[in-house]
Structure formats: C-alpha cells, structure tokens
Design a protein around this nucleic acid. Sequence first.
DNA 1: GGAACGAATCGATAATCACCTATATGCTGC
DNA 2: GCAGCATATAGGTGATTATCGATTCGTTCC
Lengths: 91, 91
Amino acid sequence: MTGIDAGVFKALSDGNRLTILEMLSGNEICACKILETLDITQPTLSHHMKVLCDSGLVTARKSGQWSYYSLNRDKLEELKSFLDSLRPYIT
Amino acid sequence: MTGIDAGVFKALSDGNRLTILEMLSGNEICACKILETLDITQPTLSHHMKVLCDSGLVTARKSGQWSYYSLNRDKLEELKSFLDSLRPYIT
DNA sequence: GGAACGAATCGATAATCACCTATATGCTGC
DNA sequence: GCAGCATATAGGTGATTATCGATTCGTTCC
C-alpha cells in the first residue's frame, strides 16, 4: 500500500548494523574506524556496509583508499513517514 | 547505546508483516480477516502474528474463538524515538 | 457429548543470512 | 614496477526463517 520496502527494515534487523548507524549519527566515519569498534572481521564489515548502502540508509564516499560513510537523510525521513502513518487503534 | 532491540526491526523485515501492520493502522482486526487478504496459509499467519506480538509491535486480544490484533502505541513511539536520534551528517 | 470452527503447535524443507578464511582489487607511496 | 595498506569479492558453513501439511487445542452451538 504505502510502497515501503521491507528491505530497509531487513537492513536494520541486525545488532551490528544498528551499532554502525548509531556511530554514523551526526558523523561521517571511515570504515577502518568502524572496524576498530566492532568485533568482526573486515570482510564481514564490508558485507554490512553493502547491505546498509543497498538499502539506501547509508551513502558511501571514497577518498583514495578510504571509504567514508554517512546517514542518508531522505531514507530516514521516509522511514519516519511510514511509522507516522501507522496509527494505533483508539479504544 | 540506545538499547533498542534489533528484534523489532526483524519483525518489520517481512513484506507480509508490513502489510499486516498497515491493515492494523487505525483498526483492531480479526485474524480471519487478515487471512482473507494475504495469500498465505493459516499456520503461516499464526507464525507472523506471533513474531509481531513477541516484538511488542502488536497486542492480541482473544474473544471466544476469535483473536483480535491492534498496534501497540508505546512500541511505535519507541521506534520513532530511535529514528529521531539518528542525525544525518551535515556537510 | 459431539460436530464445527478459529487459532496454535508440530515437524519438515527450502531459502536467506551472518560470519569466517582466502583471495582479489585499487590506491599510495618509494 | 613493487611493497603496503584499505577495501571488496569469492566460496563455504552453521544458524535462522518463511512456508507448508497435519495435527492439536479451545470455544460455540446443537
């Protein structure tokens, strides 16, 4: 109906990815910095960043050999709009 | 950090469950009504409703042999608060 | 009690996914 | 070119999950 994609929520449905999003709040962060924080290997982080980017929640910027990530405002707003459209039943 | 549970998003990460939530927007609906709409079997619907209830997004009410479901306002607010806490990076 | 109905549980299966190791790619110096 | 570093991809594995048919449970009505 609303046309929102379950894929966005699938991207959010992992503890490590939620931690990454919290790290990105207000910041643009390099992959290596995220790797220091999480207890996962580099390929696994790369996988998670791909999921987040593919979902549209995160955008990537490459500078030389480094990758910087940040939150995508539009997608966040889209998510909030969807949640706002869900009205609890008034008894 | 925020302490939000990835399980809530896991519950949202399925197309059928998103459709169910949209059906529940503003309404309290009987399971049999949902079953009419979705192209799934009754055991599968029962599974999805359990996932939604366990996540806290949906509450169930039994009346005789019927089960009625509705959205849980508090959990929805919790979700919105989390999304609000995610601030996009200002360039 | 017994039939009928809505809903939950059981058991199984195919698909998805998070994670790893190993390897490849791409960029930056020298 | 070559060494070194950051990141991406390939391939594989164990765990989770969406789905089904069959069955069970609980309620209603005769």
